[in-house]
Design a protein around this nucleic acid. Structure first.
Lengths: 113, 113
DNA sequence: GGATTAGTTAGCCATATGGCTCACCTTGAT
DNA sequence: ATCAAGGTGAGCCATATGGCTAACTAATCC
């Protein structure tokens, strides 16, 4: 799934994660966002575009300012994948536990060593 | 944090996600894992190494076979980050709601328009 | 209307990524 | 002792990524 690829790729850069973190507190202009990241504007804009292409951020231009905003449920897709995998993994561990318990019981029944 | 960088980067490739998904069902050898991915072994091994370097997978060689295994709580780090951000984002939306409510109340008090 | 602000476009550069082949090394089977 | 299986290592290649500068456009301010 190309969408997940793009989402996780977006998240793999600390500049972009910082932008997300900042936007979680509320909308901000590109200029606002760029300030804290000592980086030329065009370089920074690339990150913004990556975030938009992965549908984590939306922006529109008002006058000469571009306002950015976190997209509701943007991160849900990523979270969903992680949770599914973790669930599979954990329910497997549960089954393993009971398997081990079964072994232990048989062990008790038939004597040990 | 470089660790998060590596984790999310690992997750940004569908081959690697597939490996994780397969390992969630239980340990497997490199050969087992490689089978479903039509790709030369050395190429595939690179993915395995990426997964190891991001501490999602651990492996050790038994005889001539390398067994791979998902690392417990490997994905928790990623999930943690996502959940924190989402929480900030959502509690902000809540505050916004109450802010809007406050406005509405004042609106009622002072008459509208 | 001229300067300033806020982006945007284009293009350059170094490094990283994801694929490949070919040669090699161990281990296990015969 | 030899051969096959299962990786590994080295190195090539094309494309992607993340940074830069310089030049441009479009709004806003004085």
């Amino acid at each position: 799934m190309a969408h997940l690829d793009r989402i996780f790729h977006s998240l793999s850069d600390s500049t972009r994660r910082a932008v997300i973190a900042q936007l979680a507190h509320g909308p901000a202009s590109v200029g606002d966002l760029a300030q804290r990241h000592s980086m030329a504007l065009p370089s920074f804009m690339k990150h913004v575009r990556v975030l938009e292409e992965s549908e984590i951020v939306i922006s529109r231009k008002m006058g000469r300012v571009r306002m950015c905003q976190l997209r509701p449920d943007a991160l849900a897709v990523a979270q969903g994948w992680l949770e599914r995998e973790r669930h599979i993994w954990e329910s497997r561990l549960d089954r393993l536990d009971s398997f081990v318990e079964t072994l232990a019981e048989q062990d008790n029944t038939h004597g040990r060593k």
